[in-house]
Computed example of a mutant assay.
Amino acid sequence: MISERDRDFFQPKWRRVAITAFCTAWAAFEWYGQNTFWAMIATGAAAYCYWEYIYKFEQRKDA
């Protein structure tokens, strides 16, 4: 669940896309380096970012 403070910070779409892209790139880097443990953690972080910040994020109408 996203707090109200986080929701305010992530209102601009570029911030949500940037953090998701960063986590995805981190996951790809770890998979490429065959660091399975960190790759799974980074993949989970990327999936969470996608789910919370891209898929189900609701923009405020007044923003």
Rank of each mutant, 00 (worst) to 15 (best):
1 M>K: 04
39 A>Y: 03
40 M>P: 00
12 P>R: 06
17 V>S: 04
32 Y>L: 15
1 M>F: 09
36 T>V: 10
28 A>N: 09
22 F>V: 06
1 M>S: 12
37 F>G: 05
1 M>E: 04
40 M>I: 15
45 A>P: 00
5 R>H: 04
5 R>K: 10
26 W>P: 00
7 R>E: 07
7 R>I: 07
29 F>V: 08
5 R>I: 15
25 A>K: 07
5 R>S: 09
13 K>V: 11
31 W>L: 14
29 F>P: 00
29 F>D: 10
29 F>M: 12
13 K>R: 13
35 N>C: 05
14 W>F: 14
17 V>D: 11
11 Q>I: 01
10 F>G: 03
31 W>D: 02
45 A>W: 15
37 F>W: 09
42 A>S: 12
12 P>S: 03
27 A>G: 02
14 W>G: 02
12 P>W: 05
37 F>K: 03
31 W>Q: 09
20 T>H: 11
36 T>G: 03
20 T>G: 00
23 C>Q: 09
17 V>R: 08
6 D>W: 06
1 M>I: 07
32 Y>T: 11
17 V>L: 13
29 F>L: 14
28 A>Q: 10
10 F>R: 03
44 G>Q: 07
45 A>T: 14
32 Y>P: 01
31 W>S: 01
33 G>V: 02
18 A>I: 01
41 I>F: 15
37 F>P: 00
39 A>M: 06
10 F>K: 05
9 F>P: 00
34 Q>S: 12
32 Y>R: 12
19 I>L: 10
10 F>Q: 08
22 F>W: 08
27 A>S: 14
23 C>Y: 10
9 F>W: 05
41 I>L: 15
1 M>P: 00
36 T>N: 05
8 D>N: 07
13 K>E: 12
25 A>G: 13
43 T>H: 02
22 F>N: 06
26 W>R: 13
36 T>Q: 05
38 W>G: 04
5 R>E: 14
22 F>A: 10
24 T>C: 05
4 E>M: 04
16 R>G: 11
13 K>H: 03
40 M>G: 00
10 F>M: 12
27 A>P: 00
2 I>L: 15
18 A>R: 10
40 M>Y: 11
41 I>T: 08
43 T>V: 08
27 A>C: 06
43 T>E: 02
30 E>R: 14
41 I>K: 11
34 Q>A: 12
10 F>Y: 15
15 R>I: 13
19 I>W: 03
15 R>M: 12
34 Q>K: 12
41 I>Q: 09
8 D>E: 14
37 F>Q: 08
32 Y>H: 12
7 R>H: 13
44 G>H: 04
11 Q>A: 11
30 E>V: 02
20 T>Y: 11
2 I>R: 06
15 R>A: 09
22 F>L: 12
17 V>W: 01
14 W>R: 13
35 N>K: 15
3 S>M: 05
22 F>D: 13
23 C>M: 10
44 G>N: 05
36 T>W: 15
44 G>W: 01
3 S>P: 03
23 C>I: 01
27 A>R: 03
2 I>E: 08
32 Y>D: 07
40 M>E: 13
34 Q>M: 12
21 A>N: 10
27 A>L: 07
33 G>T: 10
10 F>A: 04
41 I>C: 14
15 R>P: 07
41 I>H: 11
23 C>E: 09
3 S>C: 11
